Measured scan of single mutants.
Amino acid sequence: TFVEFNGKKVEYPTPEAAEKAAKKLAKKLNLKVTKKNGNYKLE
């Protein structure tokens, strides 16, 4: 499962880990999380 932000793509071993990381990053970077095709994107 990938988390995409600032043009970077980071892969996580589980969807749970990706979701957790996405939410944490979104909060830190003041972005919102969108889920697309099972992957997460911060914008």
Rank of each mutant, 00 (worst) to 15 (best):
T1Q: 05
T1V: 13
F2S: 07
F2W: 13
F2C: 11
F2I: 11
V3E: 01
V3R: 00
V3D: 01
E4H: 04
E4A: 03
F5E: 01
F5S: 02
F5N: 02
F5W: 12
N6I: 06
N6R: 11
G7D: 06
G7C: 13
K8F: 13
K8M: 13
K9G: 03
K9S: 11
K9Y: 12
K9L: 11
K9Q: 09
V10K: 12
V10W: 15
V10H: 09
E11V: 14
E11H: 15
E11S: 14
E11M: 15
E11F: 15
Y12H: 03
Y12S: 00
P13T: 08
P13D: 10
P13H: 07
P13C: 07
T14S: 10
T14N: 10
P15D: 11
P15E: 11
P15H: 08
E16W: 07
E16V: 08
E16F: 06
E16A: 12
A18W: 00
A18L: 02
A18E: 00
A18V: 00
E19M: 10
K20P: 00
K20T: 11
K20M: 12
K20A: 12
A21L: 03
A21Q: 05
A21I: 06
A21R: 04
A22V: 08
A22G: 01
A22L: 03
A22K: 01
K24F: 14
L25E: 01
A26C: 04
A26W: 01
A26L: 02
K27M: 10
K27A: 12
K27V: 08
K27L: 11
K28A: 12
K28S: 10
L29Y: 15
N30F: 08
N30G: 15
N30V: 04
L31V: 06
L31R: 02
L31F: 04
L31T: 04
L31S: 03
L31D: 02
K32S: 10
K32Y: 07
K32A: 08
V33A: 04
V33G: 01
T34P: 00
T34Q: 08
K35W: 11
K35T: 10
K35G: 06
K36L: 15
K36N: 13
K36A: 13
N37F: 07
N37K: 06
N37V: 03
N37I: 02
G38N: 09
G38Q: 05
G38H: 05
G38R: 05
N39M: 11
N39G: 15
Y40N: 03
K41V: 15
L42F: 05
E43R: 05
E43V: 13
E43L: 09
